[in-house]
Simulated scan of single mutants.
Amino acid sequence: MLSRNQLHIYPTSRALRTVSERLKKEEGFLPALMRMDEFERRVILMENKIQVDPLQRILLLREAAAFDRFETLNVNRDLVRFFTKSDALFKFFEELAAEDVNFETLAQADAYAEFEEHLKILEALLHNYKKLLDEKGYTDKAFIPHAYTLNEGFISTCARIEIHLEGYLSHFELSLLEEVSQMTEVIVHYTTSRFNMKMQERFETYGIKLPNNKKVVFDLSNKTVLEVVPNTAKINAKVYAVEEREEQVALAFAQIQKMVDDGMDARDIVLILPDESFKEHFTLFDK
Rank of each mutant, 00 (worst) to 15 (best):
T72I: 13
V101T: 10
F115M: 07
L59G: 05
V75Q: 07
L96F: 15
T105K: 05
N74L: 12
F103K: 01
D68S: 07
E99W: 11
F103I: 01
D53L: 03
T72D: 14
A64N: 10
A88C: 04
A107K: 11
P54F: 00
H118S: 02
E95A: 07
E63P: 12
L55D: 14
F90M: 01
L55F: 14
R81Y: 14
E104H: 12
R69S: 10
T72N: 11
L89G: 03
F103Q: 01
T84D: 15
L96I: 08
Y112D: 08
T84Y: 15
E117T: 03
Q51F: 10
E123Y: 13
R57M: 05
L126W: 02
A111M: 08
E99K: 02
K85N: 08
E116C: 04
D110Q: 10
D87H: 04
A124E: 14
A88G: 08
L59H: 12
Q108W: 07
A98V: 09
Y112W: 15
L119V: 04
L60D: 06
F103H: 05
L60T: 01
F83C: 06
L125W: 15
A66D: 12
F103N: 01
L126K: 01
F103Y: 15
E114Q: 07
E114C: 05
A113D: 13
P54S: 00
F93W: 07
L106G: 06
E123L: 04
E95V: 04
A97W: 11
R77H: 09
E63V: 06
H127W: 15
L61Y: 03
E94K: 01
A64W: 03
L106M: 14
E114G: 08
R81L: 07
E95R: 04
R57C: 06
V52C: 00
E116N: 06
A113P: 13
E63A: 08
F92S: 00
A113S: 14
F67Y: 13
R62N: 09
A65V: 02
A109M: 05
L60W: 10
N102C: 03
L122Q: 02
L125T: 03
E99A: 07
L61M: 12
R81K: 07
L79Y: 14
F90D: 03
N76H: 11
A98M: 13
R69G: 08
L79W: 15
L61T: 01
Q51K: 06
E114R: 06
T84W: 14
A107S: 10
